[in-house]
Lab assay of single mutants.
Amino acid sequence: HHHHHGSGALAALHAEGPLAGLPVTRSDARVLIFNEWEERKKSDPWLRLDMSDKAIFRRYPHLR
């Protein structure tokens, strides 16, 4: 159930192989992290948004 927010940013994801479903670039990863943060913020208003490279690598090590 993907609803768009204002920016309408869509992340490019790997379609197949071992990385299927994972973001292709760091900016794609940022979109995913932001979208998930927006969702989680509803139940956790104090949740901090962390889109640093460090956060991205921790989450998606293949982007190193």
Rank of each mutant, 00 (worst) to 15 (best):
E16T: 12
D53F: 09
D44R: 06
H1S: 11
E38C: 14
K42L: 10
N35E: 10
A29G: 03
V24A: 04
R59S: 06
G8V: 08
P23I: 01
H2A: 09
L10D: 13
H14F: 09
G6K: 12
F57G: 06
A12T: 12
A29C: 01
F34R: 09
L47C: 09
L13I: 13
A11F: 05
A29P: 00
K41H: 11
T25V: 02
D50F: 03
S7H: 15
L63D: 00
I33M: 13
P61D: 02
G8I: 11
V24T: 04
K42P: 06
F34L: 08
L47A: 15
A20F: 11
S7D: 13
S52C: 04
R64W: 10
S27Q: 15
K42E: 08
H14L: 03
W37K: 01
W46G: 12
P61E: 04
I56V: 10
L47D: 05
G8Y: 08
K41P: 05
E39R: 10
A12R: 13
H5F: 14
H3G: 10
L49Y: 06
A11Y: 06
F34Q: 06
P45K: 08
L10I: 15
A15W: 09
K41Q: 09
A15E: 14
W37L: 02
Y60P: 00
A29T: 00
A29E: 01
D28H: 03
M51D: 06
F34G: 02
R26E: 07
E36A: 06
H14N: 04
E16D: 14
T25R: 06
L47T: 13
S27N: 14
E36N: 04
D28L: 01
V24E: 05
L19M: 07
H2S: 09
P18D: 07
P18T: 06
K54L: 12
L22P: 01
E16Q: 12
D53W: 09
H62V: 00
H62M: 01
L10Q: 14
E39N: 09
D50C: 06
G17C: 04
A12E: 14
F34A: 05
D50E: 07
A15R: 10
H3W: 11
K54Y: 11
K41L: 09
G21V: 03
H1M: 10
A29L: 00
A29K: 00
L63C: 01
K54T: 12
E16V: 11
